[in-house]
Nucleic acid binder design. Structure first.
Lengths: 230, 230
DNA sequence: TATATTGCTGACTGGTTAGTCATTAATGCC
DNA sequence: GGCATTAATGACTAACCAGTCAGCAATATA
């Protein structure tokens, strides 16, 4: 029995394999967790056999590291550039940063890395450390600069910026997590756009100095807006 | 060789075992994840052998269910009573509910259930469904009543209460998760009290109607306050 | 076409662990 | 004390899976 032309079982695609494997691994790690993910399944989803996986990654743990390392660093760097170049109010910068986050992380599979790192931090302290320093702390600094700018210009009240930033970021992380954990439990799904709009609205109003003009969120983070449910 | 009097290896304590086992299991599940937790380790931490574990739970999955089921229902019920009995402003009710959450969940090992359910929802859709309906939805309803009360009395602006509640709860969940995932990465730990104070402050100010009196958070949720860091 | 190179495969193995069960010892009852 | 009951033990097994490797087939080179 000869193989049909479309049987790509033996296709040689050295360049494409690593990215396909890490993409498949990310999906399965997020879906099932690190331990519960079988490398046979990762390989199958990437369209190769397990042996091939081991041509590109020396162990399951190395595959995990690659997934985390390669995912978010470019995004962080883009955010840092965006922050440096920004001229305008702190509120607008925060809106842009959140919009940027949504477009390049929140609505992509990369959002799953948050859930993955939360789940596995206990088993991989070294990777958790890397993620903490190179993703969380840098992302935090990004928002921190915006919040301080607002406080110094008199746009925001003076609160501890560290807590303010954590409270700014927490709903974004929760949105990422929700998508991969409980969204499917609910028939009427969470609308991310409206959720982000409300967050920006409440947060910026909560932070703004007495007498400043009320913040309106809808004007920036409103891509593909759908009708409000109920 | 006779066993010393203090050798409790064969102690018969039928009543206490199940709670000790679920407590040990919660700790390990949260620390390592469900798959990566060995039942031998659970049994050892509870001071028994693996065979004993199987006297009380018919499988690893049943143990997991017991951990989730028994943990949070009493707390939810207490919150529901507290909400019904409350007289006073919506802001005060929200402060009390958060304080109550912190005392009976946030600062206890039960907080780990959030991380556990997030991590394992994909592998146990049935338990995820239970958790979603009996814990998340009921907790959500609790806060929802408070938020609506505030909107109807004119204390809060009129926003979609569903989103407002999600944004009220998100930082609490993140606080739970943080403790078990990244807190140990950072030398200068997150102070939960101040974090909650800031959240209540920003959120209530962000929600309050124009002309209402500014909300101050510090007067309710300030137990065991420590010096502000930096 | 012949040969060398190398990306890819899948059967195999060694270690690990959920779940079992024959045995042991604590307790209660006469 | 003697006997019956049952909580507790830990060695055992069957299954599962990360990681290996000898061979196969696509491609490159001559």
């Amino acid at each position: 029995m000869t193989l049909s032309r479309s049987d790509r079982r033996w296709a040689r695609r050295k360049e494409a394999r690593p990215a396909e494997l890490t993409a498949a691994a990310l999906e399965l790690f997020v879906e099932r967790g690190y331990s519960a993910t079988r490398l046979d399944d990762v390989a199958a989803r990437a369209g190769v056999s397990k042996g091939t996986l081991y041509l590109y990654f020396s162990s399951k743990e190395e595959l995990f590291k690659a997934v985390v390392r390669e995912g978010l660093l470019p995004v962080i760097e883009r955010g840092e550039r965006l922050s440096e170049e920004h001229t305008g109010s702190a509120g607008d910068l925060i809106r842009r940063l959140i919009r940027n986050w949504w477009e390049s992380v929140g609505r992509t599979p990369l959002a799953g890395i948050a859930k993955l790192m939360i789940s596995e931090s206990g088993n991989f302290p070294e990777i958790a450390q890397f993620y903490y320093q190179e993703v969380l702390t840098r992302g935090h600094r990004l928002m921190d600069a915006a919040v301080r700018r607002g406080m110094e210009s008199g746009e925001f009240r003076r609160l501890d910026p560290d807590f303010a930033v954590r409270l700014l970021v927490a709903p974004l992380v929760m949105l990422s997590i929700w998508r991969f954990s409980f969204d499917f439990c609910d028939s009427r799904r969470l609308d991310p756009q409206q959720y982000l709009d409300h967050h920006i609205d409440i947060f910026l109003n909560g932070l703004r100095a007495e007498g400043g003009k009320p913040a309106r969120a809808g004007n920036v983070v409103s891509i593909n807006r759908k009708g409000k449910n109920k």
